[in-house]
Amino acid sequence: MHRRTFLSTVSAGLGAVALPGSLWQEAAVAGVVRGTSPYGPLGSPDGNGVALPAGFTSRVVARSSRPVGGILWHPAPDGGACFADGGGWIYVSNSEVPLVGGASAIRFRADGSIERAYRILDGTNLNCAGGRTPWDTWLSCEEIFRGRVYETDPYGVRIAQPRPAMGRFKHEAAACDPDRRVVYLTEDEDDGCFYRFVPSTWGDLSSGRLEVLCGGDPVEWRPVPDPAPGTLRRQTRHQVSQARHFDGGEGCHYANGVCYFTAKGDRKVWAYDAVRERLGSVYDGGGTLDGVDNITGAPTGDLYVAEDGGNMEINIITPDGVVAPVLRVDGHDGSEITGPAFSPDGTRLYFSSQRGSSGGSAGLDGVTYEVTGPFRH
């Protein structure tokens, strides 16, 4: 088990602090460095155009606008997550297209074969990222002006529900913190904010209080007066003058007392230490990772960060401060990597190339992959 932590010097005078948790603790260092992946170097691209370390294999599980499991897979696949399902599992994926948007799910049997696929959300707008909840629902977020969060059922039984109390803004990702019983939210604006939603009852997101992170050491959380504003003048991110702003908030992942989130304009992987209420960053450029976007993690403390652009890689950031690519998709220069998520047993990683090899803006050439191998978990 890894016991070291790293945290780069924080801008705006916050300084360097150490992250809590059994996997990220004690010593703070200057930042991550480009190094050797724990899985070794990438080999030549395989038959699917995916370059992987030795011992790993890939397969294509779905292509946009083509049949999979009884439905046509949606265009522009984006944020995703996995859910246990008896002996098998389910992978949920958003569709970042206007008007029809929504999300779909693929149910896998215990042997990895596809049992069926189905829609879990329809008629929404530019569903980008999101997040899973501890009670096994998927939060699908609209990346539009006054966008909403929809709570969906990955098992396809219950009807999706909008959660307006979580705010009306250009939503990106969500991450649940069961220790403090809050949900962290990112905002994809060049002056976006970082929020947390405090439900009235944990496990019920229909009501609660939306708060915004404000600068300081420690930081301060202040209530947003009007979480669902109806006019431009009352936009959510401009209601609290002390709010701290981030350039293009993207992915969000919580583990062991820390919420990690990315900001593409800042080119940082930020880290909010929820125990000490300090804000720092674990990646500030200078490595192989470019265009920081979706993020997920493993119980080992490893973070996996997908690139929007760059050279279409997923990079690992290890707790001992190394950043290195773990896969690359070749020939998809006009696309982005989206939706990284591990199967419940940690042996399979799912992700998509949102626009595929054509790079078309409609995302009709999107591809969803599975990589199997000896991942650390």
Rank of each mutant, 00 (worst) to 15 (best):
N48H: 12
L327V: 12
N294Y: 02
A81W: 08
R66T: 15
A228W: 07
Y184G: 05
P374M: 04
A341T: 12
H332V: 15
N311E: 15
W89H: 08
Q161T: 01
G101D: 01
R348C: 13
V32W: 14
W221M: 10
P162W: 00
S65P: 09
I114N: 02
G208V: 02
G70I: 13
S22N: 06
A165Q: 02
A324Q: 10
D190S: 13
G102W: 00
V329W: 14
E142T: 02
R3M: 15
L279V: 11
G87R: 10
G208H: 00
V212M: 10
G147C: 00
E211Y: 05
W221E: 09
H74Y: 12
L303Y: 01
D177K: 06
V329N: 09
P20I: 02
T36F: 13
A81D: 09
F194P: 07
D122T: 06
P223N: 11
R234I: 07
A243L: 10
S58F: 15
G147I: 00
F83L: 05
E151Y: 00
C193Y: 07
V100W: 04
A76H: 08
R116S: 06
D191S: 11
P162V: 00
A243V: 11
D284K: 10
W138K: 06
P178A: 09
G334N: 14
R196D: 05
A160T: 02
G251T: 12
R148T: 00
S95N: 02
S207G: 03
Y369D: 01
A174R: 05
S206W: 01
K268A: 07
R376F: 02
A16V: 08
S353Y: 13
V149G: 00
G87P: 10
F6T: 11
E307C: 05
E172M: 06
G70A: 14
Q161G: 01
G156Y: 06
M166H: 01
L126P: 07
A174W: 09
R196G: 05
L303H: 01
L349R: 10
N94S: 03
V198M: 03
G102S: 00
S37T: 11
S358K: 09
R4G: 15
T36V: 14
S281E: 11
N125S: 07
D365A: 04
E307A: 04
G123W: 03
G285C: 09
D188Q: 09
G291Y: 04
E313F: 12
A18G: 08
G31F: 03
A81V: 06
A27G: 07
T36H: 14
P299N: 05
